[in-house]
Design a protein around this nucleic acid. Structure first.
Lengths: 212, 212
DNA sequence: GACATTGACGTACAGACTGTATGTATCGGA
DNA sequence: TCCGATACATACAGTCTGTACGTCAATGTC
């Protein structure tokens, strides 16, 4: 009386069920506390199936993160306006990122548990494959780091990326969402060329009396 | 033939030995992989002693972090120049923080494992008790957020704090230390009033030629 | 200074979890 | 139709965590 399914269908179904159950539990309880028996019970399968599809618990977690990062990327790309100026594209991308990270569990998975479970190096790789690279090139397109006097573009991009993550975390933590968004937007604008040149000019006139 | 020690001495000695062994192992292997038998063997005591002094493994980890955060704070305060202007104090504090985070293991303990093991809320509390609060008040003293038009100070401070952490992480990851430092310094300067006012002014007079 | 109490451990144990080895049924191609 | 491969399920070994309990030295009291 059991339905006939191809191997491919079986695999897809169990993997999907596993990923969904694991994601929910990892988000609610964290990676360490969540046990594989628990995950399998929630997914309606046995541990044998889990270890058939994934080499270990960490590998399952990796798959969850991969899926999550891809979803974030998709969300951002879906929100990208066509034919905007580099500057506007950057700002729109910033908002889209914060919006995407609003989906429950994303901050915990990608920003808290991820680095601890998979290691910083792997997480960074995943981040760059999916999302962060676009920030660097967005900054470059908007003219940051093109002249010699400015800060190293890659390093600055990393710092801003961290600030974005923190904004997402704070929004998720229940803070009035407008404050981190506003601060992040302001900070980002400060890095754009028009602002920077003015700042450099102000800094150059160092020996002068403090401006006040 | 055994020496006579007061209870206080015994406690201090075992706790110190435990903290040192645990710190080393947590740094080298991470919290999850490090087992309590392993820690106790390295500390030269039994698990009974561990569970006498700490309620569980997580509590031991908490003690390690507490010690580490206190050390960072001490390092920063030791480097604080006396009688500097708010602006210079802020810049010096920034450098001191990055210097302090150079000590091996600190980034991993405080920035990677900490949030995952203790939870973001507790880590944030620890951070504010020890270090981060000073950034907010440093910014305020330097005049950030005093006028109504600027970004919310607390939110901006959080973003900058995250950027600092990322800089520390990148330095620790072996990147040429000068790049993250330079970028961080630049980013911080961008937020200070002189730079901002100049930036705003430059933005207002958009058609005007750049100042130089 | 004997004595009861508390603190600082050491040892033994129960429960749970992870990863692996092995068995079974279904699928897919020849 | 037969046979290898795939997708599971079950059983097992080893390890870890936290707790209960026992011991002995230190400390305060009379």
């Amino acid at each position: 009386m059991q339905e006939r399914r191809s191997n491919r269908e079986r695999t897809d179904a169990t993997r999907a069920s596993l990923l969904q159950a694991a994601r929910a539990l990892f988000v609610r309880q964290g990676y360490a506390i969540t046990s594989t028996p628990e995950i399998c019970a929630a997914a309606g399968i046995t541990r044998g199936a889990l270890y058939h599809h994934f080499v270990d618990k960490q590998d399952l977690f990796r798959a969850v993160l991969e899926q999550e990062a891809a979803a974030v990327r998709a969300d951002i790309e879906a929100a990208a306006p066509a034919g905007a100026s580099p500057r506007d594209a950057l700002i729109a991308g910033a908002e889209a990122y914060l919006d995407a990270m609003t989906l429950p569990g994303r901050t915990r998975l990608l920003l808290i548990e991820g680095p601890a479970v998979l290691g910083l190096a792997e997480l960074r790789d995943l981040d760059e494959r999916h999302a962060a690279g676009s920030l660097t090139q967005g900054l470059r397109a908007a003219g940051v780091g093109v002249d010699a006097g400015g800060p190293p573009l890659a390093a600055l991009s990393a710092l801003l990326s961290a600030a974005f993550d923190r904004a997402a975390l704070d929004i998720d933590a229940g803070a009035d969402a407008r404050n981190p968004r506003k601060a992040m937007r302001w900070l980002l604008l400060q890095t754009l060329p028009a602002a920077r040149r003015a700042a450099v000019a102000a800094a150059r006139s160092k020996p002068a009396k403090p401006r006040r």
